[in-house]
């Protein structure tokens, strides 16, 4: 068994471990891992109590990273995220007290409640992998994985993220209510918090970096690129959306699809990978044109009309 296969097996164990905690949400767990492997960040939009935090927590546990949860509020300041320099009299220097952004896994709860200035402090870090505090640039840890949540219904006193910042998130999904059987299992099983505490670390940061490298090696064929381009072109048709996907979104699509293929144990990207990733990738990037309602519905319709080359 090669090293890659070994890692892949461990990765699959990790997803299973998360699945055991967040019941019946295989798709979301799978997408979350794709996001992690593609070095992206995750935006979860849902009402409270469906397991956003549990998912983030479980992810953090199995990938064994140091984990920070930041509750975004309207009085949260950038320094509360980035950290502050404090004068050390004994050493006669300013010393940085790193903020939560220096963790490997961050749960940014209700990101839209903070002011834009605070939001952009986090988002800059997500985009560049580094932060600047008092003219000093500090590299962020690697892997660096942000999971942000938003409540799509409670919009009073929020600062919705502009499109350019939504673009920083690779993948977005909602968790949704559990299926009846999953919910029953959840109700009778033991407390999730205890379960989380018992969950072991499965992947080390070094392994995650290696897995991210592995994903880069996944083959993308010319035929598949044709398909990706056809999809991108179709999103730019104004009968679907107000504005289409950017080339950057196309790159992100490929990266996430590679991760998806890798997770499925394939060494090449198949159209199915693209089709699985595509809705999660476009959910927060595209707004339907005309009177059509649900962006996801629109995207499914679009996917069903673009033939696979």
């Amino acid at each position: 068994m090669s090293e890659t296969d070994n890692r892949l097996q461990r990765l699959q164990e990790a997803t299973e471990a998360v699945n055991r905690i967040l019941l019946g949400k295989d798709r979301q767990v799978n997408l979350a891992f794709c996001c992690l492997l593609a070095r992206g960040h995750l935006l979860i939009e849902d009402v409270p109590g469906v397991g956003k935090t549990t998912l983030a927590h479980a992810m953090a546990r199995v990938i064994g990273s140091n984990y920070q949860r930041v509750q975004f509020t309207s009085d949260l300041l950038p320094a509360d995220i980035l950290g502050v320099s404090i004068y050390k009299r004994e050493k006669d220097v300013f010393e940085l007290h790193p903020g939560p952004i220096f963790s490997q896994v961050i749960l940014a709860d209700e990101i839209n409640r903070a002011t834009p200035k605070t939001q952009s402090a986090l988002l800059e870090g997500m985009a560049e992998g580094q932060v600047t505090i008092e003219n000093e640039t500090h590299a962020l840890p690697d892997p660096f994985f942000v999971m942000a949540t938003q409540n799509p219904l409670d919009l009073v006193g929020t600062f919705p993220l502009p499109d350019s910042q939504l673009d920083r998130f690779l993948i977005s999904f909602s968790i949704g209510y559990p299926a009846p059987e999953a919910e029953r299992a959840l109700l009778v099983a033991e407390d999730r918090a205890l379960l989380l505490d018992r969950t072991e670390q499965i992947l080390s940061p070094a392994e995650i970096r290696a897995l991210q490298e592995d994903c880069n090696a996944i083959h993308v064929s010319e035929n598949l690129l044709d398909y990706v381009q056809a999809l991108l072109a179709e999103t730019r048709d104004e009968r679907w959306f107000e504005a289409g996907l950017s080339p950057r979104a196309g790159l992100a699509l490929l990266a996430a699809s590679r991760a998806h293929a890798f997770l499925a144990g394939r060494d090449y990207v198949a159209p199915e990978d693209i089709k699985t990733i595509f809705p999660a990738l476009t959910r927060h990037r595209l707004s339907p044109s005309g009177f059509s309602q649900d962006p996801e519905e629109q995207v499914r319709e679009l996917l069903s009309q673009v033939p696979i080359p």
Binding site: A270, P271, E272, K275, S304, Q305, V306, I308
Partner: peptide
């Protein structure tokens, strides 16, 4: 079969 379906699907 729909031509918009991939082979694995």
């Amino acid at each position: 079969a729909s031509l918009a379906n991939g082979p694995l699907e």
